[in-house]
Design a binder for these strands. Structure first.
Lengths: 121, 121
DNA sequence: CCGATAGATTGATGACTGTCGATGAATGTA
DNA sequence: TACATTCATCGACAGTCATCAATCTATCGG
């Protein structure tokens, strides 16, 4: 791998979250705002291309990937991939870090756990 | 009275259930078909009204609710609520059972767990 | 500087989605 | 039978979304 990895992509801001951070869908009726926030995140997962991007990033070497490594495998044009990455980033699921000419995307730790916890009773 | 649920998710005490049922987003790159199937389910969760419907059903007495009990709280018209319930049912998240004049919707056990498991590493 | 590369942004387009009023099909009640 | 209730379906409309070609910005190598 010719590209040099410099630093750990993301600094964990908090310890392990997931349980007490966010409302559960099953425990009590959701407020409008809670539902809107959650729906925004799940909608980001509601596209096959974005799920594949997530899994490609997670499975990549060092758990990070640049856009150029994703365009081919996901089978979409570069602007489309860039768009989907932006949607995922806006939902807090991934984060990009520019290093040289490349932008390295990695999965935001804890965010998926957060969503996962909202699906348990 | 109490719904005669099918004998689906019972003897799965080994490991957290769902571990072997469906692909994880984070473990290996998803195939197109897997991604499409998962995205369909997450897309169903990607709407505030549907999340609220889920939580209303889960929190209802007996964990089931008829449409007439949902229209008011969710704040949408009856056809719209009916539409959202259909989307949730098509995603396998809820199931409806007609009893008399009412259709009682309940959350399909295990389906949310299944989705939840795809979000863990 | 110059050309090449990585990636984001813009603009256009076709498809899909959420929404509601009107209507239809079942079911229960007087 | 006639009427009311419950819910699904239909038709229409406005808004959003996924997609790509073209373009723009930033970075690197010479």
């Amino acid at each position: 791998m010719a590209r040099t990895r410099v630093a750990a992509p993301v600094a964990r801001t908090t310890a392990s979250l997931g349980a007490a951070c966010c409302p559960s869908v099953l425990e009590a009726p959701l407020e409008q705002a809670e539902a809107a926030e959650l729906a925004h995140a799940f909608a980001a997962l509601g596209d096959p291309a974005r799920l594949r991007l997530l899994s490609l990033i997670a499975a990549a070497d060092g758990a990070e990937a640049c856009v150029c490594d994703l365009v081919g495998p996901v089978g979409k044009s570069q602007p489309t991939v860039s768009h989907h990455l932006k949607v995922l980033a806006d939902a807090g699921l991934i984060a990009g870090e520019k290093r040289g000419r490349w932008v390295w995307y990695s999965i935001v730790p804890g965010r998926l756990d957060q969503l996962r916890s909202t699906l348990s009773a």
